[in-house]
Design a binder for these strands. Structure first.
Length: 519
RNA sequence: GGCCUCAUCGUCUAGCGGCAGGACGCUGGUCUCUCGAACCGGAAGCCGGAGUUCGAAUCUCCGUGAGGCUACCA
């Protein structure tokens, strides 16, 4: 079936976790591959040994799987151009480098002619937190590095067409020193390791990548990479640079500081399909106002033309000070759970949360139970005591009112644990007004006598009770609600009674009468 | 400092020379049962200045602001 020549890749570094920016980049590649029936390749860019984490690759693959993005070739499943780890392709980079050297396109040199960086620049880099001592030292390495000879070919500017941004160009002078010589750049470090730009091109050529889809922080790299493609005499792929995703401060997402690990969103009870939908809409839109779009619809509608070039903020809702400075790069479960609590709060009222709620509503009860179970277990509810049917009834009642799985688990608490105390405000507002306590006593006796404990029967009982006394339904429903839940909020009262069961309902009402009497 | 890119409600966006529209949030209201549910309203925006044009959010130029890259980091 697959006769498309489209081959795209997602090439993350295994530095600890998959974050929302990476997911967006992966997503747009994946969407394009699926739309064109091409191949989506997962490649691990682990040439920077310092920053790699051993379990990094697994974390990325787990995140991709959770998001629902599958790959056709990759580190675990291999493929025609294996291996898909850069660290295992070192010989190949050296081989290509040797070819370039042999054909006079690259040369070994020790250049410190540029000398140490100008002071203003060092200061700026330090200020931006980008200063890297190791990197600075490497530049001072006494051994030669392999430089690519930049060939301007008489061009006044270097130009390429970007599928998203249109024609992009850069003046040739940028690659010229004042004396007219070209500003060549390193492709193999003095320690023999390839730099990113070089390894990336070699891999993309070897793996026959047709479209390079990545963040627009790579636009500048593209110009350098074009010199490599040309020197090596290879076909240049189509480039598509995606607008960045910024944090709330309008800066490039920082893995260190921002809460962006997708496992965090998972823990907040976000559904993967909702996160994907939300991220697809960051920088792309179908153009007709559709917001909730199932994956197959997004695939059908996806095109580079509809990607805009301005950056988007990955914004939650209210900004509150985080409990700790770590943005999710923690391994301490205690700290992690604090961050999840904080993030859940920040998410209230956000578009992501809204989209999630929409997806949550559409799940079948079976599916909802499956997804919610880990969250219910985390709340220490004893699930073994209850039937599947009962559990589905319970979560079904809160399905519409909850926007995340985490909220759902919190909202159903009253069905698993009787309230230990009554909310004093609720007692004041409901039980101590309008004869609340007296009415509760009366309705309790009727509930004790009812023959059929079913939703409709209970609905009839409560409504009949109110009608008889010419009271608004709320006047009687609220006292029951407070008795059952301890608060003024719960699902519809007859459903709550029904699911709780006669015995438990009466027990709670009795307890509430006793407690409220003392207050 | 140099080069590149971007600029529409608070946020995500539609707009491709002809009345600035949608969504989230906010806000007001409705609902003989509560709610962060549902339903119905409202406020809220073209970064600034010139130019082209009968007409500019849209095209051009100049500012301003923001971001990216700029070292052997990816």
């Amino acid at each position: 079936m697959s006769n498309s020549s489209v081959r795209v890749r997602f090439a993350p570094s295994p530095t600890g976790y998959l974050h929302v920016g990476g997911v967006r980049t992966a997503l747009f590649n994946w969407l394009y591959a699926r739309k064109t029936q091409g191949k989506f390749i997962l490649r691990i860019e682990d040439t920077d040994i310092q920053r790699n984490k051993e379990e990094g690759t697994q974390i990325i693959m787990d995140g991709m799987k959770w998001s629902g993005m599958n790959w056709d070739e990759g580190p675990d499943i291999g493929g025609p151009y294996a291996p898909y780890y850069q660290s295992q392709r070192m010989d190949r980079y050296k081989q290509v480098a040797a070819e370039l050297e042999k054909s006079g396109k690259a040369y070994w040199a020790k250049k410190d002619a540029g000398g140490p960086l100008p002071d203003w620049k060092i200061e700026k880099l330090k200020k931006q937190g980008k200063w890297d001592d190791e990197k600075a030292q490497a530049a001072q390495d006494p051994n030669p590095a392999l430089y690519l000879k930049v060939n301007l070919k008489e061009r006044k500017e270097i130009t390429f067409h970007d599928a998203v941004k249109g024609d992009l160009s850069k003046p040739a002078e940028t690659y010229q020193e004042e004396d007219g010589s070209t500003r060549d750049f390193v492709i193999l470090r003095s320690n023999g390791m390839p730099v990113y730009n070089f390894a990336c091109v070699v891999d993309d050529v070897d793996m026959k990548i047709s479209h390079v889809i990545r963040g627009d922080d790579h636009v500048e790299n593209t110009f350098r990479q074009i010199f490599i493609y040309e020197a090596w005499d290879q076909k240049i792929p189509v480039f598509a640079h995606l607008p960045m995703i910024f944090n709330e401060e309008g800066k490039k997402i920082s893995k260190r500081r921002d809460p962006v690990a997708i496992t965090l969103y998972q823990a907040c009870g976000i559904l993967p399909e909702a996160l994907i939908n939300f991220e697809a809409l960051l920088g792309w839109s179908p153009g007709d106002g559709r917001e909730i779009m199932p994956l197959d619809e997004i695939i059908r509608e996806f095109s580079f033309e509809r990607i805009k070039s301005a950056a988007a903020q990955f914004t939650l809702s209210r900004k509150r000070p985080p409990p700790v400075s770590a943005g999710g790069a923690t391994t301490d479960p205690e700290v992690e759970s604090q961050i999840v609590e904080w993030l859940s709060e920040c998410m209230v009222g956000s578009k992501l949360e809204w989209i999630n709620g929409e997806y949550l509503k559409k799940l079948s009860r079976e599916e909802l139970l499956k997804r919610a179970t880990p969250f219910l277990q985390k709340k220490d509810y004893d699930l073994t005591q209850h039937s599947r049917g009962w559990l589905m009834d319970v979560i079904g009642m809160e399905q519409e009112r909850s926007k995340t799985l985490k909220q759902l688990a919190e909202n159903v608490a009253l069905f698993f644990k009787a309230p230990e105390a009554l909310d004093p405000k609720a007692v004041e507002k409901v039980l101590k007004k309008n004869d609340g306590l007296a009415l509760l006593k009366e309705v309790r006796d009727q509930l004790a006598k009812i023959e059929e404990w079913s939703g409709p029967a209970l609905d009839g009982l409560v409504k009949g009770f109110a009608e008889q006394r010419q009271l608004k339904l709320g006047i009687i429903a609220q006292p029951i609600r407070v008795a059952l839940s301890g608060t003024t909020v719960s699902p519809p009262i007859h459903d709550t009674l029904h699911v709780l069961g006669q015995q438990e309902s009466l027990r709670r009402i009795d307890k509430a009468l006793e407690l409220a009497g003392k207050m």
